[in-house]
């Protein structure tokens, strides 16, 4: 697999799984406006995943659906941060949302500066939507950062958040989150999957697996 395809798959897997996890709030978010807002963010993330899978798929000779749903759970390249189910814990959901959006911004900025015009162009498009996700995440964090449960969640998820980025970009994440005064920790590397991914995969692919090869 080319380095480019590998990198695109990592981000696509993150966006797909986080989009899925965020969509688990649809219908039960803390209030109606937030329900619509968070569901919309989830839809955007899955839209980004599709665009990234399509670009990776051109290198790999596969469709976006084949990449999203036809791989075995252990083949996913997702970060540990996006895998766990947090419903009905809004504190951890917001902590993850904020950590992820901050890390994702660093990653997208790097892609925008890429020499590969296709990658840079797609990253710029994705970033125009991510601006709103970041605003949303920042508003929520600002509102809840004084809550002990959110603080605990930030500390708990911090090693996994570092694992979203490669070694080279981690110092930037530490720098941007300096104000949160998070501890020095060993990052949880990408690709070490928890049981929760397998469980999510079962649900996520059940319809597609029910009639292999069908056209939907």
């Amino acid at each position: 697999m080319s380095e480019r395809a590998q990198q695109l798959l990592e981000i696509a897997d993150d966006e797909l799984l986080l989009g899925w996890r965020n969509s688990e709030w649809t219908g039960i978010a803390p209030f109606l406006e937030e329900d619509v807002a968070f569901s919309s963010i989830a839809q955007n993330e899955i839209g980004h995943a599709r665009a990234l899978y399509e670009l990776a798929g051109r290198d790999l000779g596969k469709t976006a659906d084949e990449l999203a749903f036809d791989r075995a759970p252990e083949e996913y390249r997702s970060a540990a941060l996006v895998e766990p189910r947090f419903v009905p814990d809004w504190a951890r959901t917001i902590a993850r949302h904020y950590l992820y959006e901050t890390a994702d911004q660093i990653r997208i900025e790097a892609l925008k500066a890429s020499d590969d015009a296709e990658v840079a162009g797609l990253a710029a498009k994705i970033d125009r939507e991510e601006v709103y996700h970041r605003m949303h995440a920042e508003m929520w964090l600002e509102r809840l950062v004084g809550e002990p449960r959110v603080r605990e969640a930030l500390v708990e998820l911090w090693p996994k958040a570092l694992g979203v980025l490669g070694d080279d970009l981690r110092p930037l994440l530490r720098e941007r989150l300096a104000a949160l005064d998070l501890p020095e920790v060993e990052p949880v590397e990408r690709g070490k999957h928890s049981g929760e991914l397998a469980e999510l995969w079962e649900k996520m692919t059940v319809v597609r697996r029910s009639v292999p090869g069908a056209t939907w």
Binding site: F31, L32, E33, E34, V36, A37, S40, Y132, M135, H136, M139, R143
Partner: peptide, 15 residues
């Protein structure tokens, strides 16, 4: 309905 102006703007945009 929103906790403050920033959230209000955000939710208005979404709705």
């Amino acid at each position: 309905e929103a906790p403050n102006k920033d959230f209000g703007d955000w939710y208005a945009r979404e709705q």
